[in-house]
């Protein structure tokens, strides 16, 4: 039997006294490309931190590949690309190769050194995101879009089954956002990765995602992209708590 990548049962979470997530129930099926949308402050990043084990749920349970998320042994099953990745310390003197290698540190384990196989893996991950020509450049010298590709490579290098991305395209221009989605699409289709993507670019995301959830303290919607795009402005305004204009993308 194939287990879902993530199962959340009745999960609630509060910072001090402020409830941010209230009885969340949902599943990320294996092989899905799930988009998470919702207003700022709706609890999307909190949800992801719970899945990653950075926060512990006040109530409810989280399972990752049918293992209790809090005790998950093999953390390398999850790759993560952070919201903050494009705000990292630009002056940090590290080459692309060094940054991507840091994605293998935990996999290799303590008291062991990088060997030839690891080196090939690192170069392969850099190649997958199309940045091999820049492998020995300082990461600070790259553009925002290129840096974000490097962070994907860092997530890919340990060969995770589930890749979680928190608003990875903020601050990247439209052309590069397109290329970015093409890359995600390939990972999903060709390598059978399960993807969980938090984003505001609903227009582009609905073209690639297989499932969509809308989060604002509770789950307001959970369904297929076609269902999501057929929602009316009135439905959406209810989730967001303010009027919403649907911007249509005609390609």
């Amino acid at each position: 039997m194939e287990y879902p990548a993530v199962t959340m049962k009745n999960v609630s979470y509060a910072y001090e006294n402020k409830t941010v997530l209230d009885h969340i129930n949902f599943e990320v099926p294996k092989g899905a490309f799930m988009g998470v949308v919702g207003p700022n402050g709706g609890g999307k990043t909190t949800l992801i931190k719970l899945i990653l084990g950075l926060l512990k749920p006040d109530k409810g349970s989280i399972n990752i590949f049918n293992e209790n998320g809090e005790k998950l042994q093999d953390r390398n099953k999850i790759g993560f690309v952070s919201q903050k990745a494009n705000a990292f310390n630009k002056g940090f003197p590290a080459t692309v190769y060094e940054v991507v290698s840091s994605g293998l540190t935990a996999t290799i384990g303590y008291f062991k050194f990088f060997n030839k196989t690891h080196k090939d893996k690192i170069l392969h991950a850099i190649d997958q995101v199309g940045m091999l020509d820049y492998a020995y450049e300082n990461i600070g010298n790259l553009s925002g879009g290129q840096q974000q590709r490097i962070f994907i490579a860092r997530a890919l290098v340990s060969d995770p089954e589930l890749i979680i991305l928190d608003e990875p395209t903020v601050g990247i221009d439209y052309e590069n956002v397109k290329r970015f989605y093409e890359l995600l699409h390939q990972l999903h289709q060709k390598q059978n990765k399960t993807l969980l993507l938090v984003t505001h670019d609903t227009g582009t995301m609905t073209e690639y995602a297989t499932d969509i959830v809308c989060l604002n303290k509770t789950l307001h919607f959970h369904g297929k992209p076609e269902e999501y795009t057929s929602l009316t402005e009135k439905d959406l305004s209810q989730f967001y708590g303010h009027p919403v204009n649907i911007v249509s993308h005609n390609h």
Partner: peptide, 22 residues
């Protein structure tokens, strides 16, 4: 020398280091 890769990983991105299980 023994902990070089861990020290580098932690220095570059502490949150990511923690998530990956260090």
């Amino acid at each position: 020398v023994l902990f070089y890769k861990e020290l580098f990983t932690l220095s570059f991105d502490e949150e990511h280091a923690t998530i990956s299980g260090l």
